[in-house]
Amino acid sequence: MTLLALEDIHKSFASAEGPVPVLQGVSLTVAGGEVVALTGESGSGKSTLLHIAAGLEAPDAGRVLVGGQDMAALPDTGRAKLRRGTVGLVFQQFNLVPSLSVGANLAFQARLAGGHDAAFCTQLAARLGLSDLVARYPEQLSGGQQQRVAIGRALAARPKVLLADEPTGNLDEATGDAVFALMLELARAQGAALLLVTHSARLAGRCDRVVHLRAGRLA
Protein backbone atom coordinates (compact mmCIF):
# COMPACT_ATOMS: atom_id res chain seq x y z
CA MET A 1 0.00 0.00 0.00
CA THR A 2 1.40 3.38 -1.01
CA LEU A 3 1.93 5.61 2.02
CA LEU A 4 3.89 8.38 0.33
CA ALA A 5 3.16 9.64 -3.16
CA LEU A 6 4.81 12.63 -4.81
CA GLU A 7 3.07 13.56 -8.06
CA ASP A 8 4.60 15.84 -10.68
CA ILE A 9 6.36 18.06 -8.13
CA HIS A 10 7.73 21.34 -9.39
CA LYS A 11 9.78 23.75 -7.32
CA SER A 12 11.98 26.70 -8.15
CA PHE A 13 13.79 29.28 -6.04
CA ALA A 14 14.10 32.98 -6.69
CA SER A 15 17.53 34.38 -7.43
CA ALA A 16 18.96 37.64 -8.76
CA GLU A 17 19.02 36.11 -12.25
CA GLY A 18 15.40 34.94 -12.03
CA PRO A 19 13.74 31.71 -10.85
CA VAL A 20 16.05 28.71 -10.62
CA PRO A 21 14.18 25.44 -11.17
CA VAL A 22 15.15 22.81 -8.59
CA LEU A 23 12.51 20.13 -9.14
CA GLN A 24 10.89 19.69 -12.51
CA GLY A 25 8.06 17.22 -12.48
CA VAL A 26 9.25 14.65 -9.97
CA SER A 27 6.92 11.74 -9.26
CA LEU A 28 7.67 9.03 -6.74
CA THR A 29 5.81 6.55 -4.56
CA VAL A 30 6.92 4.61 -1.48
CA ALA A 31 4.87 1.75 -0.09
CA GLY A 32 4.53 0.71 3.54
CA GLY A 33 7.54 -1.31 4.67
CA GLU A 34 9.49 -0.21 1.62
CA VAL A 35 12.86 1.50 1.85
CA VAL A 36 13.74 3.84 -1.01
CA ALA A 37 17.11 5.54 -1.34
CA LEU A 38 17.19 8.93 -3.00
CA THR A 39 20.58 9.74 -4.44
CA GLY A 40 21.97 12.56 -6.50
CA GLU A 41 24.71 15.13 -6.70
CA SER A 42 24.88 18.13 -4.40
CA GLY A 43 22.31 20.68 -5.47
CA SER A 44 20.25 18.16 -7.39
CA GLY A 45 17.19 18.88 -5.20
CA LYS A 46 17.22 15.83 -2.89
CA SER A 47 16.75 17.76 0.34
CA THR A 48 14.15 20.02 -1.22
CA LEU A 49 12.17 16.99 -2.31
CA LEU A 50 12.43 15.53 1.19
CA HIS A 51 11.30 18.82 2.76
CA ILE A 52 8.32 18.93 0.40
CA ALA A 53 7.48 15.34 1.29
CA ALA A 54 7.52 16.35 4.98
CA GLY A 55 5.33 19.38 4.40
CA LEU A 56 8.10 21.70 5.57
CA GLU A 57 8.07 23.33 2.17
CA ALA A 58 5.26 23.73 -0.35
CA PRO A 59 5.73 22.74 -3.99
CA ASP A 60 5.00 25.26 -6.74
CA ALA A 61 2.94 22.57 -8.42
CA GLY A 62 2.10 18.91 -7.88
CA ARG A 63 0.59 16.82 -5.10
CA VAL A 64 2.06 15.26 -1.97
CA LEU A 65 -0.05 12.40 -0.63
CA VAL A 66 0.89 11.18 2.83
CA GLY A 67 -1.25 8.30 3.95
CA GLY A 68 -3.66 9.32 1.20
CA GLN A 69 -3.98 12.94 2.36
CA ASP A 70 -2.87 15.71 0.03
CA MET A 71 -0.39 17.63 2.15
CA ALA A 72 0.05 20.43 -0.37
CA ALA A 73 -3.65 21.25 -0.16
CA LEU A 74 -3.62 21.62 3.62
CA PRO A 75 -3.15 24.89 5.49
CA ASP A 76 -0.12 25.33 7.73
CA THR A 77 -1.91 24.00 10.82
CA GLY A 78 -3.11 20.94 8.90
CA ARG A 79 0.38 20.22 7.58
CA ALA A 80 1.80 20.59 11.09
CA LYS A 81 -0.78 18.15 12.45
CA LEU A 82 -0.05 15.62 9.71
CA ARG A 83 3.68 16.00 10.38
CA ARG A 84 3.13 15.40 14.11
CA GLY A 85 1.19 12.20 13.71
CA THR A 86 2.14 10.67 10.39
CA VAL A 87 5.68 11.70 9.48
CA GLY A 88 8.96 10.98 11.23
CA LEU A 89 12.04 13.00 10.33
CA VAL A 90 15.70 12.18 10.84
CA PHE A 91 18.35 14.79 10.01
CA GLN A 92 22.05 14.55 9.36
CA GLN A 93 22.76 16.86 12.34
CA PHE A 94 20.29 14.96 14.57
CA ASN A 95 18.47 18.20 15.59
CA LEU A 96 17.53 16.97 19.01
CA VAL A 97 15.95 19.37 21.49
CA PRO A 98 18.98 20.38 23.57
CA SER A 99 17.02 21.44 26.65
CA LEU A 100 15.29 18.05 27.04
CA SER A 101 16.78 14.80 28.33
CA VAL A 102 17.21 11.77 26.07
CA GLY A 103 14.08 10.21 27.55
CA ALA A 104 12.03 13.35 26.94
CA ASN A 105 13.46 13.69 23.43
CA LEU A 106 12.50 10.11 22.60
CA ALA A 107 8.92 10.62 23.74
CA PHE A 108 8.49 14.19 22.52
CA GLN A 109 6.91 13.76 19.10
CA ALA A 110 4.75 10.88 20.22
CA ARG A 111 3.42 12.98 23.05
CA LEU A 112 2.85 15.91 20.70
CA ALA A 113 0.81 13.64 18.46
CA GLY A 114 -1.11 12.32 21.46
CA GLY A 115 0.05 8.77 20.77
CA HIS A 116 2.61 8.31 23.49
CA ASP A 117 3.10 4.72 24.55
CA ALA A 118 5.52 4.58 27.48
CA ALA A 119 6.09 0.85 27.15
CA PHE A 120 6.86 1.19 23.46
CA CYS A 121 9.29 4.03 24.17
CA THR A 122 11.08 1.94 26.78
CA GLN A 123 11.24 -0.91 24.31
CA LEU A 124 12.56 1.40 21.60
CA ALA A 125 15.19 2.82 23.96
CA ALA A 126 16.34 -0.69 24.81
CA ARG A 127 16.39 -1.70 21.16
CA LEU A 128 18.45 1.39 20.31
CA GLY A 129 20.82 0.77 23.23
CA LEU A 130 19.77 3.94 24.98
CA SER A 131 18.31 2.50 28.19
CA ASP A 132 21.19 3.75 30.32
CA LEU A 133 21.24 7.14 28.70
CA VAL A 134 17.66 8.38 29.12
CA ALA A 135 18.56 10.84 31.90
CA ARG A 136 21.39 12.41 29.92
CA TYR A 137 21.22 15.46 27.70
CA PRO A 138 21.99 15.42 23.95
CA GLU A 139 25.35 17.17 24.20
CA GLN A 140 26.50 14.48 26.62
CA LEU A 141 26.14 11.84 23.90
CA SER A 142 28.35 10.82 21.01
CA GLY A 143 27.25 11.45 17.42
CA GLY A 144 26.12 7.85 16.99
CA GLN A 145 24.14 7.93 20.20
CA GLN A 146 22.50 11.20 19.22
CA GLN A 147 21.47 9.81 15.86
CA ARG A 148 19.97 6.77 17.57
CA VAL A 149 17.92 9.12 19.76
CA ALA A 150 16.79 11.00 16.63
CA ILE A 151 15.69 7.71 15.02
CA GLY A 152 13.93 6.64 18.20
CA ARG A 153 12.14 9.98 18.44
CA ALA A 154 10.97 9.68 14.82
CA LEU A 155 9.74 6.11 15.31
CA ALA A 156 8.18 6.52 18.78
CA ALA A 157 5.10 8.13 17.24
CA ARG A 158 4.69 5.11 14.93
CA PRO A 159 4.75 7.27 11.77
CA LYS A 160 3.44 5.98 8.46
CA VAL A 161 6.22 7.75 6.64
CA LEU A 162 9.83 8.06 7.77
CA LEU A 163 12.01 10.61 6.00
CA ALA A 164 15.76 10.62 6.62
CA ASP A 165 18.17 13.18 5.24
CA GLU A 166 21.74 11.81 5.20
CA PRO A 167 21.19 10.10 8.57
CA THR A 168 24.71 8.70 8.67
CA GLY A 169 26.52 11.59 7.03
CA ASN A 170 28.03 12.74 10.30
CA LEU A 171 29.03 9.33 11.60
CA ASP A 172 32.05 7.13 11.00
CA GLU A 173 31.55 4.12 8.75
CA ALA A 174 31.12 1.49 11.46
CA THR A 175 28.75 3.57 13.55
CA GLY A 176 26.91 4.70 10.44
CA ASP A 177 26.41 1.12 9.29
CA ALA A 178 25.08 0.07 12.68
CA VAL A 179 22.68 3.03 12.90
CA PHE A 180 21.54 2.48 9.32
CA ALA A 181 20.83 -1.16 9.90
CA LEU A 182 18.86 -0.38 13.03
CA MET A 183 16.77 2.25 11.25
CA LEU A 184 15.95 -0.07 8.40
CA GLU A 185 15.03 -2.87 10.75
CA LEU A 186 12.76 -0.73 12.93
CA ALA A 187 11.09 1.02 9.98
CA ARG A 188 10.37 -2.28 8.32
CA ALA A 189 9.11 -3.73 11.57
CA GLN A 190 6.66 -0.84 11.89
CA GLY A 191 5.61 -1.08 8.26
CA ALA A 192 6.61 2.53 7.62
CA ALA A 193 7.47 3.91 4.20
CA LEU A 194 11.08 5.03 4.41
CA LEU A 195 12.55 7.54 2.01
CA LEU A 196 16.16 8.30 2.70
CA VAL A 197 18.58 10.68 1.11
CA THR A 198 22.15 9.41 0.86
CA HIS A 199 25.35 9.99 -1.06
CA SER A 200 26.59 6.52 -0.22
CA ALA A 201 26.13 3.98 -3.00
CA ARG A 202 27.03 1.28 -0.50
CA LEU A 203 24.16 2.18 1.83
CA ALA A 204 21.80 2.80 -1.08
CA GLY A 205 22.56 -0.69 -2.23
CA ARG A 206 21.05 -2.08 0.95
CA CYS A 207 17.68 -0.41 0.24
CA ASP A 208 14.74 -1.95 -1.60
CA ARG A 209 14.92 0.60 -4.39
CA VAL A 210 17.21 3.43 -5.46
CA VAL A 211 16.02 6.52 -7.32
CA HIS A 212 18.48 9.03 -8.69
CA LEU A 213 17.77 12.71 -9.00
CA ARG A 214 19.61 14.69 -11.67
CA ALA A 215 18.99 18.34 -12.48
CA GLY A 216 15.61 18.26 -10.82
CA ARG A 217 14.36 15.15 -12.57
CA LEU A 218 14.39 11.47 -11.65
CA ALA A 219 16.85 9.70 -13.86
Binding site: D76, T77, A80, F91, N95, V97, S99, L112
Partner: peptide, 15 residues
Protein backbone atom coordinates in the same frame (compact mmCIF):
# COMPACT_ATOMS: atom_id res chain seq x y z
CA UNK B 1 18.56 26.19 15.68
CA UNK B 2 16.53 25.39 18.80
CA UNK B 3 13.15 26.02 17.21
CA UNK B 4 13.69 24.23 13.92
CA UNK B 5 13.30 20.66 15.34
CA UNK B 6 10.02 21.59 16.99
CA UNK B 7 8.71 23.01 13.77
CA UNK B 8 9.80 19.86 11.97
CA UNK B 9 7.95 17.77 14.56
CA UNK B 10 4.67 19.56 13.99
CA UNK B 11 4.48 22.83 15.85
CA UNK B 12 3.32 25.69 13.64
CA UNK B 13 5.24 28.92 13.25
CA UNK B 14 2.36 30.79 14.87
CA UNK B 15 2.57 28.49 17.91
Amino acid sequence: VQLAPLWAMGLTLRQ
